[in-house]
Amino acid sequence: MRFLVLHAHPDPDSYSAALHAAVVGALAAAGHAVDDCDLHAEHFDPVLSRDERRAYHDLAQNRLPVADYVRRLEAAEGLVLVYPVWNFGFPAILKGFLDRVFLPGVSFRIENGLVRPNLRRITRLAAVTTYGAPRWRACLMGDPPRKCITRVLRALAASQARTRYLAHYDMNRSTPATREAFLRDVRHCMEHF
Rank of each mutant, 00 (worst) to 15 (best):
residue 112 N to D: 15
residue 19 L to I: 08
residue 127 A to N: 10
residue 133 A to Q: 12
residue 98 L to E: 12
residue 56 Y to P: 00
residue 27 L to G: 06
residue 186 V to T: 06
residue 87 N to K: 04
residue 69 Y to M: 08
residue 26 A to N: 07
residue 114 L to E: 15
residue 67 A to T: 01
residue 140 L to G: 11
residue 135 R to K: 13
residue 60 A to M: 02
residue 26 A to W: 02
residue 129 T to F: 01
residue 107 S to N: 09
residue 160 Q to G: 05
residue 64 L to Q: 14
residue 3 F to P: 05
residue 57 H to I: 00
residue 112 N to G: 14
residue 148 C to W: 07
residue 104 P to G: 06
residue 56 Y to F: 14
residue 109 R to Y: 02
residue 186 V to Y: 09
residue 180 E to L: 06
residue 176 P to F: 03
residue 53 R to L: 14
residue 179 R to G: 04
residue 173 R to S: 12
residue 38 D to G: 06
residue 174 S to Q: 09
residue 15 Y to I: 02
residue 70 V to G: 10
residue 54 R to Y: 00
residue 97 F to L: 12
residue 36 D to L: 01
residue 121 R to K: 14
residue 90 F to E: 07
residue 104 P to L: 08
residue 170 D to I: 00
residue 160 Q to K: 12
residue 3 F to N: 04
residue 118 N to C: 14
residue 116 R to N: 03
residue 67 A to F: 00
residue 145 P to Y: 09
residue 125 L to D: 11
residue 168 H to R: 11
residue 62 N to H: 05
residue 175 T to L: 10
residue 16 S to L: 05
residue 108 F to P: 11
residue 103 L to W: 11
residue 125 L to W: 07
residue 7 H to E: 06
residue 181 A to P: 05
residue 122 I to M: 13
residue 2 R to K: 14
residue 95 K to M: 09
residue 70 V to S: 09
residue 191 E to K: 02
residue 11 D to K: 01
residue 146 R to H: 12
residue 151 R to I: 13
residue 111 E to V: 15
residue 150 T to R: 10
residue 78 G to V: 05
residue 173 R to T: 10
residue 58 D to G: 07
residue 36 D to N: 14
residue 134 P to H: 08
residue 45 D to I: 02
residue 39 L to F: 10
residue 158 A to Q: 13
residue 42 E to T: 13
residue 163 T to G: 05
residue 15 Y to C: 02
residue 83 Y to C: 01
residue 169 Y to R: 03
residue 14 S to L: 06
residue 84 P to V: 01
residue 48 L to A: 13
residue 131 Y to K: 03
residue 165 Y to F: 15
residue 25 G to D: 08
residue 141 M to H: 09
residue 65 P to L: 04
residue 1 M to T: 10
residue 184 R to P: 00
residue 88 F to M: 11
residue 182 F to A: 04
residue 127 A to H: 03
residue 93 I to S: 04
